[in-house]
Nucleic acid binder design. Sequence first.
DNA 1: TGTAGTGTCTCTAGTTACTAGAGGTTCAAG
DNA 2: CTTGAACCTCTAGTAACTAGAGACACTACA
Lengths: 138, 138
Amino acid sequence: MFSIGELSKRTKVKVPTIRYYEEMGLLAAPERTEGNQRRYDVAGLERLSFIKHARDLGFSIEAISELIVLQGHPDRSCQAATDIAVSQLSEVRAKIKRLRALEKELVRISKGCDDEGVSENCYVLASLADHKLCHHDH
Amino acid sequence: MFSIGELSKRTKVKVPTIRYYEEMGLLAAPERTEGNQRRYDVAGLERLSFIKHARDLGFSIEAISELIVLQGHPDRSCQAATDIAVSQLSEVRAKIKRLRALEKELVRISKGCDDEGVSENCYVLASLADHKLCHHDH
DNA sequence: TGTAGTGTCTCTAGTTACTAGAGGTTCAAG
DNA sequence: CTTGAACCTCTAGTAACTAGAGACACTACA
């Protein structure tokens, strides 16, 4: 049995965040001491590790809730869980794509001033003011 | 002079968002009709286009505020504006890096079930439950 | 001039995933 | 038995909006 602080250290999830997950229904409410403090068992630790890992991979709280429900239904759970992971993957890929476009644009914009030695007219500000100066979509 | 709705159509910024920008001090409070409705001039339109463009490039409201201040100080503004753009660029690059790692991991996780035909033990769920199964940092 | 319908006004509250702080209680060590 | 760290609940704040309520304004048509 560990306290919330110990759980926090082991999982690297902050104490208020653990309480937040409990409130959101991701984490079952654990036993309490007589003095009303939370005491977790190994199952609680594993559950929180699962949540932490999924959050690190960018899954939303909602998606994690679904995954947790699936854990309780070994039949059919694999396909559904894979679907969630695949959809997460496509979101990640979409974000990467978008960020790459932004990266290109920002490289171009932030190089402007140095390259041309323009000082009275800032190329960064001009580029932001006038979308026509852009070379890419965004 | 255009109404808030017209401004919204021209800039593709939603009406409540325009009011929000005004409240946040990004956009000057425009003239009003006798009936208290906002009426914008070309300067307002240009300012909002600038904000929209910068937001699309991922600049925070705070960074945009700074850029707007810089627009009013043609001296020194170029270097400072470039600094903001460069810092935005490095944030974008950091995000891309992180997302690529997640992408790899998600590809691996979501392929697990199909590849090995495991059905009673879902690889997605197992991977999330046990970080040791990961091949990359995240 | 009347009226219908759309646009606009302000204000409050909700979103996501936490984080910070106040004010009070409990636990563990010495 | 006392001290100090850890814990408790509750409220409010973060970013950048979005949604909805209820009331008022503007425009076009008859």
